[in-house]
Design a protein around this nucleic acid. Structure first.
Length: 152
DNA sequence: GCCAACGTTGGC
DNA sequence: GCCAACGTTGGC
């Protein structure tokens, strides 16, 4: 099993929103970065665990866990001219962007904040805390995953 | 709201 | 292929 971290702005889509979705399922679409796209398309497998990270908010940090409920398929939002993430270049016959579906697993008893994660020497290799990192999807090693969970 | 970091675009 | 201009991300 692989481990990941995905960011979402809680004002746009929060972990509470995921909880309230039918079946607690949600298509994770709108990713428009090639590095992140490649991970979604090629590496994220059914059952993989994913940290839900709240970004661009008062208290950025990890708030919960989800799992991959469906492996990659073309991101339909790229073909919708009315969608915020519409991409005129993406050709339905040769899609440029991909989605996965995620399912809610749990909410952490507290937010494990970015501030706290930055202080841990064990996490210096974590992409999230590298300066200037803007990736919205990133891998987490099993060691990092266990370490972070133990902070809860 | 500011702004540093970074990815993308497009002229050359 | 270089690189300046521009747009976006996201912490603060």
């Amino acid at each position: 099993m692989n481990y990941w971290l995905m960011k979402s702005e809680p004002d746009v889509f929060s972990i509470s929103d995921l909880v309230n979705r039918p079946g607690q399922l949600e298509p994770w679409d709108g990713v428009r970065n090639y590095q992140a796209r490649n991970m979604i398309r090629d590496a994220m497998k059914l059952g993989d665990r994913v940290f839900f990270y709240h970004s661009n908010c008062a208290e950025p940090g990890i708030v919960g866990i989800m799992e991959v409920a469906k492996e990659s398929y073309p991101d339909l939002s790229a073909f919708d001219p009315n969608d915020k993430h519409f991409d005129r270049i993406s050709d339905p016959a040769n899609p440029r962007w991909f989605s996965i579906d995620v399912r809610y697993v749990k909410t952490l008893s507290r937010t494990i904040t970015l501030q706290e994660l930055k202080l841990k020497p064990e996490l210096t290799g974590l992409a999230l805390i590298k300066r200037g990192n803007r990736l919205s999807v990133m891998p987490v090693s099993e060691e990092q995953w266990q370490f972070i969970l133990a902070l809860e």
